[in-house]
Amino acid sequence: MKIAVYGQKITEQNIPYLNKFIKYALNQSIEVYIEKCFLQTLSSFREFKEMKYPIFSHYEELKKNFSLMFTFGGDGTILSAINFIRDSGIPIVGVNTGNLGFLATFNKDVFIHKIDQIFNKKLYLMPRSLLCLESSIIKFHKTFNFALNEIVILRKETVSMITIDVYIDNDFLTSYWADGLIISTPTGSTGYSLSCGGPIISPDNKNFVLTPISPHNLFSRPLVISDHQTVHLKIHSRTMYYSLSMDTRLTSLKKENELYIKKAPFYVYIFQEGKNTYFKTLREKLLWGIDQRN
């Protein structure tokens, strides 16, 4: 069995958990590959200074019989890891050493006790849908034009609003006068969309959410649509460019670029402890049912 290990930064108090996990895997004759930049970060700690591990640094290297990817960090770490996973179908085990943990649902203490079940794939595997992006002018690479959380259009180099004309399956919906627009998956509904007033949607739903960012029209509200539909966007701005983000990736496009957003033709698979872990996570992270008056 081959596994991949990925992280972005790690604190000293989390090193013993990672070290124990890797030693356990090696004792089980499991090949452990560590992402190149993460291994450089780990090499500053005594436990990893003298150790040699095989590395990976490109998504094509993960298509060679890898069984699992383990991420150590928060949800942002998983979003970055998607750049390596892409459409390979390799399941992700997110160990939460960060803050929120809507995606990285394994507490580091619980994770250590669940290692055998994880390696034997006896826990619940949740498929997560993604967004796919195409442009009328720019040709994106077919394996790099996707987002697990959301695609966001934002004004750039101006304090003025931008206007975004929205078409659903070629039918005109409306024009948003706003700072921007978020197109979110159910997975991303607890992210940027939520902070802008969007609804929470459980990840097994087949929907997208359109959430305007600071709209000028008070009657502009988030809209839930089927993920079988295509969203077509035309952007009007006083400046030449607008900003486009896809999860952790940010770029600028000329306003002549019209965007077409639809469901990606593949899923990302994330391990969690049980089928209803999502609702447990919502209660814990959003403090539902907890009296905050005192």
Rank of each mutant, 00 (worst) to 15 (best):
A4Y: 08
V5L: 09
Y6W: 05
Y6T: 04
K9V: 09
Y17P: 01
F21Y: 05
Y24I: 13
Q28S: 13
Q28H: 15
E31S: 15
E31H: 11
C37T: 10
L42Q: 03
F45T: 08
E47A: 15
I55M: 12
F66G: 11
F66K: 11
S67E: 15
G74Q: 05
G74T: 04
G74C: 08
T77D: 07
T77G: 05
S80T: 08
N83G: 12
F84G: 09
F84C: 10
G89T: 01
I90Y: 11
P91I: 01
I92A: 13
N96L: 11
N99G: 10
N107R: 14
K108A: 11
F111W: 06
K114T: 12
P127C: 03
L130K: 09
L131Y: 01
C132E: 12
F146D: 00
A147W: 11
I151V: 12
I151F: 08
R155L: 06
T158E: 03
S160W: 00
D165A: 13
Y167I: 03
D169C: 08
Y176M: 07
A178I: 01
I182K: 12
P186R: 14
T190I: 05
T190E: 04
P199V: 00
P199Y: 04
P203G: 06
K206P: 00
P212Q: 13
R221C: 09
P222N: 03
P222S: 05
S226W: 05
H228N: 13
V231Y: 05
L233P: 06
S243V: 02
S252H: 10
K254W: 00
N257H: 13
N257W: 03
N257E: 14
E258P: 00
L259M: 04
P265W: 10
Y269Q: 02
Q272N: 12
Q272D: 06
Q272C: 14
G274P: 00
K275R: 05
K275A: 02
F279K: 00
K280M: 03
T281Y: 00
T281I: 07
R283Q: 14
L286I: 11
W288R: 00
D291M: 11
Q292M: 13
R293C: 08
R293H: 10
